[in-house]
Amino acid sequence: MTKPAPLLSASHVTAGYGLTRRAPAVLHDVSLTVAPGTTVGVVGESGSGKSTIARVLVGQLTPSEGEVLVDGVNLQTLGRAERRMARRRVQLIPQDPYASLDPRMSIGETLLEALNPAGGPMSRYADRIAELLETVRLDPDVASRLPHEFSGGQRQRVAIARALAVEPKLIIADEVTSALDASIQAEILELLKSLRREKDLACIFVTHDLAIAADMCDEIAVLYLGRIVEHGPIPILSAPQHPYTRLLVDSVPDPYGAFLTASAHDAITVVEPPDPANPPSGCPFHPRCAVGPQVREGRSDCVEIIPPLEVKDAQHSTSQAACHHPLRFATETLAPGQSLL
């Protein structure tokens, strides 16, 4: 069975802001593909580059190396008019609901702009706008109100409506629930799930919350210090190959407190992610790695060579890890708290 052509693919992207000695690249050699109708999660903590990756994928930031293809076409190669139109295929729902809407335009006008960028009579599009608002479960009567009259959660819905108005093929959700209360988070996520089903959308979900990613996504890519360290279908979270993914999974709070012991290792003293401007040599995770040179003998390759992202276990060819000494893939069940290390 041939795989469908990817909707979006980034290959060997290196990107950053300014790119001088003081502002080094934020992303290094990142490759990612999104097939139509699938949802890919991008998970990382601070300093991982996940906000940057959203901007690169949506076309706001040009990579210094590598390329981003939308439907197989690199947008930079198109003429300006074509590029503008092609941009509409990928839409972004930004993180901050308080900054994503023009404070001077009513939400009806914002949606009108999305439906017809050239500007058109409101009357012609009023029905469509009402429809869009209903899709995101907002009362169509609120179209004449200004953004500041709405709560954060409601504004996120408007941002979603605007993204949908363009009828994109792919939506990138950049930490869309981080600014919201827990109950509102759940509502927005439910909304996204149902919309995704209805419109058969592909989705990239950028988040720091592993639990949300596990719930929303089909595949997951784990970012650490600007590199993808693990990539594969969601079930890999049950038995990760890369020690960082293991650490992430083990750090998610559980009511029994197992996460307190599971994520700890006596020999590891470094707990913070390093400064992106001053990354460790070789594998960026080695100072914190529970199976790395701090703990085990003879792992100097971790300090010297940057591990490439590749398939480590022939039996699980859809999963890749960037590790010289990946963890075994579990085939047996584990008791709570038991470590795979």
Partner: peptide, 19 residues
Amino acid sequence: MAGVQTLTTQRSSPGWSRL
């Protein structure tokens, strides 16, 4: 040149070590 917009509930930003 896009600026990165992050929320004020910031996660620990590692710029300190440069200092």
